[in-house]
Design a binder for these strands. Structure first.
Lengths: 134, 134
DNA sequence: TATGCACCTTGTAGCAGCTACAAGGTCAAG
DNA sequence: CTTGACCTTGTAGCTGCTACAAGGTGCATA
């Protein structure tokens, strides 16, 4: 199948697929006589895997690791487990930070609604609140 | 005050401060005879504002807007309110996505612990699960 | 006065993960 | 034989910094 078809099938832009090839994330495809990339079902499966892992927040280098691991059937499972655990931790960290952030933002909104007229309390808050972030 | 001092005072790298100047986020400072940037307390206040807003997840262009708004005292409050509301919405969206993501990741881990030996269930899941993300 | 050292200057390139061109080649339908 | 959809490579851009390199400044000390 050509790049456009693969793109459609996986919801990936053709440019992104070529980018993955350049980066060694997706193996290079065979070429047709007209020099078009010619993808196999293997490619389709791998690209789906890649997109899924990326969608789960794994970095491209983590995705590469996952792909390598999933190729060697022996001893890989604990390593994969480790990667997933690490990613889960990271996601939890992000969630916590975002919740703090959300609380601050909604407090801002509340303080604004309290002050009908006059100086904007939000701006004040932005300028003065304690530096809780990060 | 020189850039290093401002950097320390705000927890910002000097390079980032110069970047903000280039991008028109922070106004350019006066120069000393030796061509060093010489910052005022106004700059300090503005940079604190910028860092705080960035820490709350506002993009640099949103930060610019906020700064412009906070300069014109009239009619600005509702615009600021709008920006904050928009950002809050964005943050909530991110939180929801991350929670979905977390659930998937922990399900993966559970399926892995279930299968003591043999093929890695995580890899299977990565390859096959429905495309829930995004 | 010389020298060392911390600090500053500009300019440029790099990071991730794409995305968006431009300029041209291929191929099937009409 | 032309049109138009698709493909090719190459390069530059996006966000928000960060990290150099090569050189200038300013102050304390020998």
């Amino acid at each position: 199948m050509r790049i456009g078809e693969l793109a459609k099938a996986t919801g990936t832009k053709a440019e992104t697929i070529r980018y993955y090839e350049r980066e060694g994330i997706l193996p290079a495809a065979d070429r047709t006589t007209g020099n078009y990339r010619d993808y196999s079902n293997e490619h389709l499966a791998t690209l789906s895997f890649v997109r899924r892992a990326r969608g789960l927040g794994f970095s491209t280098s983590q995705v590469k690791e996952l792909l390598t691991l999933s190729d060697n059937d022996d001893k890989s499972c604990s390593d994969v487990d480790q990667l997933v655990r690490q990613q889960l931790k990271e996601v939890n960290r992000k969630i916590e930070n975002l919740i703090l952030l959300r609380d601050e933002l909604s407090q801002m909104l509340q303080s604004c609604e309290a002050s009908r007229i006059g100086d904007c309390q939000i701006v004040e808050r932005l300028a003065q609140s304690p530096q809780v972030w990060r």
